[in-house]
Amino acid sequence: MTKEAKVSFLFFAPAGIFMLIFLLFPVMLLIKDSFFQVDMISQDSGTFVGISNYIESITSDRFLGATTNTLIYVVVAVSAELLLGLFFAMLLNTGFKGHGFVRTILLSPLMIAPLVSGLIWKFMLNSQFGIVNQLLYDFNITSSRNAIQWLSDDRTALLSTIIADIWLTTPFMMLVLLAGLQGIPVTLYESAKIDGANKIKTFFYITLPSLLPVLVVAILIRTVDAARTFDIVWVLTQGGPANSSEVLSTYMYKTLTRYGEVGESSAMAVLFIILLLLLSSYFLISMFKANKK
């Protein structure tokens, strides 16, 4: 070992050891447990059951339902955030007077806990005292004050959790896209103007392509975060009613704590990691390709 490498190792060692024990070991344990039937109380290492935990999860309707719900959640939430975020970012990017102040307003939910967002919407969507139903009634959209049972109707429960997610994370999308917009060289717009491009053409031929690398990263980050959502769903519906808003995180949590199925929840967790890695590798590859261009 050279002296440099030794020093580097010394600096890295404390963090390295910590991560070895409390990050790498847990992941290893997770993979191991997924092949075992583990008893939480006796705390022995359990009996080896091969891939039966995996088979059990994949073939269970609840797992498939939770996966479908997670996919719906991700697709709807991320697309809505993207459109809203881009809309706000473009408005702010016009640089009107006082845009800094408006930006601060829009960014203020940035650090709010997902749990708090869940609570806010739990309160607003409450079918009895909620202001959302009141407003819908006031504007004559619905015929009674508790026309929509947002959280206890299996048709709207998942949608309600998605609304809370969109509200919470649109500011992040806006922030990243705004930074991306501001990074587009003004000369590009000027030459487009000289070429006689109108606003719509400029948007599709200049803005969107230049924004693409940032867009891909923003979508990737938000996709992964939305897929692992737990707090919002837990506080709003706990996955109910009748599992209609059950996502993978809440289902795994229940499998672990309510049913004590360490093996099966571990198997699902491993599947979940693989799913997300596959998904993100697709994004990372397309990002890499976009960069090359």
Partner: peptide, 16 residues
């Protein structure tokens, strides 16, 4: 690690 869902870490962490 950023891709790993929290719940996946939480399960073995709970056992440890």
């Amino acid at each position: 690690i950023r891709m790993v869902p929290m719940i996946s870490i939480a399960i073995p962490m709970y056992i440890i």
